[in-house]
Design a protein around this nucleic acid. Structure first.
Length: 94
DNA sequence: AAGGTGACTGGCC
DNA sequence: AGGCCAGCCACCT
């Protein structure tokens, strides 16, 4: 289960983001599970490309995530990723 | 086995 | 936009 989530996270292209819910739908589990797995992940994978339905991440990661977005050109609106423009749906192109 | 918990969500107000 | 709420599902007491 955890491996499937990690796999999808690695498929998210630069400059785009996807949501817990989207990943959950693809791997067949609940969004909270994806979140739980993310919380156990390490810095080696692009965790910042996975946000909640509002395009946000927990407080302690927001700053780092925003920095990453600016670096790879992810559309940002205020203090969160602009999902309307940056959202990428797993399975759509694979 | 039973109940609590959380990087969540969609519906309603 | 922001808050509340009932579902949600795997993991931890």
């Amino acid at each position: 289960m955890r491996e499937r989530v990690v796999e999808v996270v690695h498929d998210v292209p630069e400059g785009a983001v996807t949501t817990y819910g989207d990943i959950a739908a693809v791997v067949g589990t609940g969004a909270r599970q994806v979140g739980r797995i993310m919380s156990e992940g390490d810095a080696a994978w692009p965790w910042w490309r996975v946000t909640n339905a509002a395009g946000r991440l927990p407080e302690h990661l927001q700053v780092e995530a925003l920095a990453a977005y600016r670096e790879e050109g992810t559309p940002i609106r205020g203090d969160h990723a602009d999902l309307r423009r940056a959202r990428w749906r797993p399975g759509f192109d694979e």
